[in-house]
Design a protein around this nucleic acid. Structure first.
Length: 1065
RNA sequence: GGGCGCUUAGCUCAGUUGGUUAGAGCACCGCCAUUACACGGCGGGUGUCGCAGGUUCGAGUCCUGCAGCGCUCACCA
């Protein structure tokens, strides 16, 4: 259903000036309970939304497109508050723009998260004593699928629980058919275009999971290690050099020793060879700038490497990234000495295994290290050992040290200008730091250049420097869960492989792409000359369709067993969810791609800039020639009460359902929005709810490995020490399992009280307004707008502008602040209190109240959709449309599809705001006296004042009397009555008579003395300024004038107070 | 190590281009059953704005240095 048609059932606006609320019995909120109970309201509201289909987007509907792609959550676990935060902000944007008349699509979905999901499933199997390899690939994938189904359902229900207005009918999963089709097409295209290649490179290898890892899947951990100083003899027997290493076991694969060309010892060693101990391999000494010289020889003493360095660096190209680079520069061999499980092996590229070396084959990395060090010691080649603490990369899944491992992997050539260059050129010009690299700036112009903008702007720098330093992207993973790589390969001599070319040429080039790679050096050979090329080749055939694989397999080709990095499919999210490359294939996707890509904004977290934003930009621009989104909004991070990032692995994540349970969805959303500031991460102290007693309490904390502070896995009931419960940390980490006797404790946090109180305040303000309007006198006549009415309308218009501006800047806390001030401070504290005596008989005021209330519900809806939708029918029944000239309030059956109120500029009334500010100041100062003297609110007093104050009181239309408890206003008498209390206001004296039965001279003196001291402090500050020549000469004249005026007024106030003080004797 | 951010009331945080008396919510202390709301109303106290310099008539705000915290990228000599 389109957003247009949902308005249909609302009653038309009454057009006669008196045809509004009065006598409208059905609007009586008799049935509205005394407090807002979210758990009773939320389900009903969700049903109304679902039944109306109001979140469904159709490209044919009118309005400019407003699109957000949800960052698809991993199906590894349920969502936590970090997701709730991000999704609350997205929903705010989506609902606001929907109400603004945009054709709005919020695309939901989930991510298969290859390694993470496979790992959690393997962990679960391990608890049953089973391994992945006990199953066939298909059977294992089926198990993962079951996990995915469970968590996908959980995640989607969490999103619904939060009130996310996603188009759930269009929900996607990164491995469903449309997404898989997009992945297949993208891989095929990149392969055909030479942007995907097979390469032998060092990867981050997890020897336990036995898969390559992306850089971001590697965690650095501090480890106590050693520096071992090993002597390598010169081949000619003329001495030795000493290398320092933290990984002595890799020496088996050394193919050189490097020295800095500036090292004074380099010249004498030039051309000499070393005899590698144990192995006996003769290796060269190469000269390379990369080598740090020891501090003693002129190395930079500030460089910690110079402290430990000998100036000689063992080079193991197959087991160290930097050594690999040196190897490339000096054409060194890369000798891989390890098996995929990390053990020393002579079967994976190590050919020259000496008799001495044999004893190490088969050992683990750790054992080999010990034995090799022992060998050096025995042979007097171990010069020294020094302790050394350093950080080592560990697999974020198996937690073992990652091995830089030489293996064949698939890469995307993101360093190509078609990817890297277009990404950099998409940046908004004013957000580019300095200038783009010359070769990038010189690249071809295309649509979308300069269109990508970051909020806050500083994050553009992350994006830029990532692309400037980007390396080719390893996309193959040795996993079973994911998109399988669609390449079939056969290895053989060129001539024999060439015999298949005939069969391959029968396949259309739009369905198959062929490349030949020489095994020896990875160089690509032209297919045409394959038959005559010497040596072994890998013939890679990439297929668009599995159906073409059968004849290849018959001919001896094997399909690559690996799957693609999860981010490969995520990178296609703005394309695949809209049906790319062929939306006509799925009828419900027709027209989506053209209508909703580029999207409006991507809302995500900092670390995602490199992982996901970058890749979406590159792919979207490459495949579709457009940016995937115009804006990137980077939100803050939610931390726990100890300043630690909320994460699944740490087990400190809070389930949003817990907060919804304790405070309600709107309360959670409002509070999260209010916390969304531009620079500050959000710290959220977390409490537990005792499942036995319902009581909230602070959990017992403990220190976990890594120094993190976490809640004890098992907690004791504060009411009954014999009763226990499991904390979220215990459940998430598996250290404790909830049972019937020991249930899981929900989390909560007092931070959300703010939102709960706010929702309740709105609820009651509405209840109150409705009851007054229901009881309005039917014969009341229109009257001119009062100051209070004009002020309220001006504040409403002001808040609307504040919200627009805040949303345009993605400064969400300003949205919450504007709404809070509008609803609580302006509407409840002043307007509703102020209209109490008049609203039932003033028809104009009734219309203002109805229109303001209607507007407030609309403006609050994007943040608090449930309470506003719940109140909506009652408020709509007031028929506020057309009630106030200058506010357009189109009727609507649902608040969710109601139009944002349109305020005419004439409601903007700075004079009303300024004059009412004087009213507020007068009321405040009277209230202060009443408060200080502890005067009962029931006690009414007489205000004695001069002309200007009495004029103000008259202009307020009774507001001062009502809010300050004044029963009568008189002119200042010639002599001060004994029973009157004095206060200065705007430089003159105002008296309150009848405040107290008898003036307590002591208390009065104290009050006035304090008041004088306050004013004196201000006055002296101003006098100081005015006596400063520089201030008079250089500050803006109007500022100086303002200071003079203010000082005069303060001095008059002081004089008034002093005369009152003197009168007390 | 590079980059980015943070340090303001007991707690969690605002503070727009430098400008008059630095704010909010919570907590705390009084008073209050009043045409809605105690998830409430009215009033109140609370700050060497991390430290040290500098620029300026004027600095929470700009500059420099230092300290602490966090994130991110890089890093196993």
């Amino acid at each position: 259903m389109s957003s247009e048609t949902t308005h249909g059932s609302a009653s038309p606006a009454p057009t006669n000036p008196q045809g509004n609320a009065q006598g409208n019995a059905q609007a009586t909120p008799a049935e509205l309970p005394k407090a807002y109970v979210p758990s009773e309201a939320e389900g009903a509201v969700r049903s109304r939304w679902n039944n109306s289909g109001c979140f469904h987007a159709e490209p044919g509907n009118s309005g400019d497109a407003y699109t957000i792609f949800i960052p698809p959550p991993n199906v590894t676990a349920a969502l936590h508050l970090g997701h709730a935060f991000n999704n609350s902000l997205q929903d705010l944007l989506v609902r606001y723009h929907r109400m603004r008349g945009f054709n709005t699509l919020w695309m939901p979905g989930t991510d298969h998260a290859g390694i993470a999901t496979q790992t959690v499933v393997e962990k679960r199997l391990l608890m049953q004593g089973k391994k992945r390899t006990d199953f066939t690939r298909e059977a294992f994938v089926q198990k993962v699928q079951e996990w995915k189904d469970e968590y996908e359902a959980t995640i989607l229900s969490q999103l619904e629980g939060m009130g996310c207005s996603c188009d759930f009918k269009r929900t996607r999963f990164t491995m469903d058919e449309p997404c898989a089709t997009a992945v297949r097409h993208a891989f095929f295209t990149l392969f055909k275009d030479g942007l995907v290649y097979r390469g032998k490179r060092l990867v981050n290898w997890d020897p336990v999971s036995q898969t390559a890892l992306a850089d971001d899947e590697v965690e650095m951990e501090e480890v106590d290690g050693s520096f071992w100083y090993l002597k390598y003899p010169l081949a000619d027997g003329s001495g030795h050099v000493t290398v320092a290493t933290t990984r002595p076991e890799t020496m088996l694969g050394d193919t050189a020793v490097a020295v800095n060309p500036k090292d004074p010892r380099a010249a004498a060693l030039r051309g000499k060879k070393l005899r590698l101990p144990i192995v006996g391999r003769e290796i060269p000494i190469v000269e390379d700038d990369y080598v740090v010289m020891p501090a003693s020889l002129g190395g930079d003493p500030a460089d910690p490497k110079a402290q430990f360095a000998t100036g000689f660096l063992k080079v193991t190209p197959a087991h160290d990234q930097n050594d690999w680079d040196i190897g490339q520069r000096h054409a060194l061999a890369a000798i891989n000495i390890m098996a995929p499980d990390g053990s020393i092996s002579d079967r994976h590229g190590w050919m020259d295994v000496s008799a001495d070396a044999k004893q190490f084959v088969g050992l683990s990395r750790e054992e080999a290290r010990k034995k090799i060090v022992a060998w050096f010691k025995q042979n007097n080649l171990l010069e020294e050992v020094k302790p050394y603490r350093h950080s080592v990369g560990h697999s974020y899944r198996s937690h073992v040290p990652v091995e830089p491992y030489l293996s064949d992997q698939w890469y995307v050539r993101v360093t190509d200008d078609r990817l890297r260059g277009t990404a950099l050129r998409s940046m908004a010009k004013d957000q580019v730091e300095g200038t783009l690299p010359a070769e990038v700036a010189a690249g071809p112009k295309m649509a979308g250049d300069g269109e990508l903008r970051f909020f806050p702007a500083r994050y553009a720098k992350n994006f830029q420097s990532w692309h400037e330093n980007i390396r080719d992207w390893c996309i193959s993973r040795q996993l079973w869960w994911g998109h399988r790589i669609p390449v079939w390969t056969k290895r053989g001599e060129g001539a024999s492989l060439a015999t298949h070319l005939g069969m391959l040429s029968s396949l259309s080039s739009s369905r198959a792409s062929v490349r030949a790679v020489r095994v020896a050096d990875g160089a690509e050979a032209a297919i045409g000359s394959l038959a005559s090329s010497k040596g072994d080749f890998d013939l890679h055939v990439c297929l668009l369709d599995d159906a073409d694989g059968a004849p290849l397999e018959t001919a001896g080709f094997k399909r690559d067993p690996d799957v693609l990095d999860t981010w490969f499919s995520s990178a296609l999210w703005p394309l695949s969810t809209l049906g790319w490359p062929d939306p006509s294939k799925w009828s419900e996707m027709a027209g989506l791609l053209d209508r909703y890509n580029p999207s409006s904004v991507l809302c995500t977290a900092r670390e995602i800039i490199t992982l996901w934003v970058s890749r979406m930009v590159m792919f979207n621009r490459y495949f579709l020639g457009r940016v995937p989104f115009k804006h990137v909004f980077i939100h803050a991070m939610i931390q726990d009460g100890h300043g630690q990032k909320m994460s699944k692995s740490l087990g400190n994540g809070v389930d949003p359902r817990d907060i919804i349970h304790s405070h309600g969805s709107d309360a959670m959303r409002f509070t999260l929005v209010q916390m969304a500031t531009n620079t500050q991460d959000v710290r959220l102290p977390v409490d537990l709810v005792d499942p036995h007693s319902g009581e909230t309490f602070g959990p017992k904390w403990t220190t976990a490995s890594g120094g993190y502070t976490v809640a004890d896995a098992i907690q004791t009931s504060p009411k009954d020490p014999s009763k226990k419960m499991v904390s979220g940390y215990g459940a998430a980490t598996g250290t404790a399992t909830p049972t019937a006797e020991m249930p899981l404790a929900r989390n909560t946090s007092a931070r959300f009280d703010l939102g709960r109180n706010f929702a309740n305040k709105l609820w009651n303000a509405t209840r109150f307004a409705l009851s007054n309007l229901a009881q309005a006198s039917p014969d009341s006549k229109p009257e001119p707008l009062t100051l209070l009415d004009r002020w309220m309308l001006a504040r409403l218009e002001h808040a609307s502008r504040a919200i627009d501006a805040a949303i345009a800047d993605y400064e969400f806390h300003r949205v919450a602040e504007a709404l809070y001030d509008l609803v609580w401070r302006d509407f409840c504290d002043w307007y509703l209190e102020g209209v109490k005596p008049t609203v039932r008989t003033n028809a104009t005021q009734q219309r203002v109240l109805a229109a303001v209330l209607d507007s407030i519900l609309r403006m609050l809806h994007p943040v608090c959709p449930f309470v506003t939708e719940t109140l909506w029918p009652s408020v709509q029944a007031l028929g506020a449309s057309g009630a106030v000239d200058g506010i357009a309030l189109r009727p609507s059956a649902l608040c969710a599809t109601a139009a944002w109120p349109a305020f005419d500029a004439k409601l903007r009334d700075e004079r009303a705001i300024a004059e009412f500010a004087r009213v507020q100041a007068l009321v405040d100062s009277i209230r202060r006296v009443r408060g200080e003297r502890q005067v009962s609110p029931k006690r009414k007093v007489v205000l004695l004042a001069g002309d200007s104050v009495r004029a103000l009181v008259a202009a307020s239309g009774g507001v001062v009397e009502t809010l300050a408890g004044i029963e009568k206003v008189d002119a200042s008498p010639a002599s001060r009555p004994m029973t009157a209390v004095a206060l200065p206001f705007e430089g003159s004296e105002v008296l309150l008579d009848g405040l107290v039965d008898a003036v307590d001279a002591g208390a009065e003196k104290a009050r006035l003395t304090k008041l004088i001291a306050e004013r004196e402090k201000q006055a002296s500050g101003m006098r100081g300024k005015l006596s400063n020549e520089g201030y008079i000469a250089k500050a803006k004249p109007e500022l100086v004038e303002e200071t003079r005026k203010k000082l005069a007024e303060i001095e008059a106030d002081i004089a008034a107070a002093q005369s009152a003080l003197a009168a007390l004797g």
